[in-house]
């Protein structure tokens, strides 16, 4: 059986890395005694797979994790126990169980981000949307590559100091920091939050695990 959880990452803990989050989950699953399946061999690893990495420093209410089980468990029952076993700021928002199969890495086609900005980005956003191409130089695997990022920008709006952006993750993902660079705006410390990850199925768009009110400021406003 496979369990899929949706979780939030907010507050000070947002400064931990993707790998750190993986280790937090391994420990939490052991503390709650979830019957996680392990790989074989001399150094067995728990079978966990995370979706698209969240940049260190970003917050999120739309992180996902798949856990392969050796047995069965009820995700709804586990969710609060796992939240309690995870560090402050990492909260489980929902869970489902299925037979496994498709991976988050392959299925997610777009992410929605909210970026708090001190300043007026409206003119830059307008210009970007009007442009046919937006070419930036960015780093990929340690190399500088020059790309047109315009096709990856699905939606973009700026209102009340918040830049809301929906960015494609395939074929080559666009990161919030790269979007900001494309807008000619590189703040020292923009508050970045992932609000949705979208998958496409049967010609429609879905969240892997929807929330009733994803746009509510869930888990935010906590001590930070």
């Amino acid at each position: 059986m496979r369990l899929r959880f949706r979780f939030a990452k907010a507050g000070k803990v947002r400064w931990t890395s993707h790998r750190d989050v993986a280790r937090m989950w391994e420990r939490a699953l052991r503390r709650v005694r979830v019957p996680v399946a392990y790989s074989g061999g001399f150094s067995p690893r728990p079978k966990l797979s995370f979706g698209l990495a969240l940049p260190t420093g970003a917050e999120s209410v739309a992180e996902y994790l798949d856990v392969e089980l050796d047995g069965a468990a009820d995700p709804a029952e586990l969710a609060p126990l796992l939240s309690a076993a995870l560090p402050v700021g990492v909260d489980v928002l929902g869970g489902v169980g299925d037979e496994g199969g498709s991976s988050l890495q392959n299925d997610v086609t777009a992410c929605r981000w909210e970026i708090e900005i001190d300043g007026d980005l409206a003119p830059a956003v307008e210009a970007m949307l009007a442009a046919d191409s937006v070419v930036i130089t960015r780093q990929r695997k340690g190399q500088d590559v020059t790309d047109d990022i315009r096709p990856a920008i699905i939606r973009l709006e700026f209102a009340d100091g918040v830049l809301a952006a929906e960015l494609a993750t395939q074929p080559r993902g666009l990161r919030p920091s790269e979007l900001l660079a494309g807008l000619g705006f590189e703040p020292e410390n923009a508050r970045v939050r992932r609000t949705h990850q979208w998958i496409e199925r049967d010609g429609a768009r879905w969240e892997p695990i929807p929330l009733d009110a994803t746009d509510a400021p869930l888990a935010f406003g906590r001590a930070s």
């Binding site: 000070k12 803990v13 400064w15 750190d20 260190t56 700021g89 020292e188």
Partner: peptide, 17 residues
């Protein structure tokens, strides 16, 4: 402290928690 963290390696060194 927080505004400095986006600009350093391994910011989790400074958060405690």
């Amino acid at each position: 402290i927080e505004p400095l963290l986006a600009r350093v390696q391994k910011p989790a060194r400074y958060i405690g928690c």
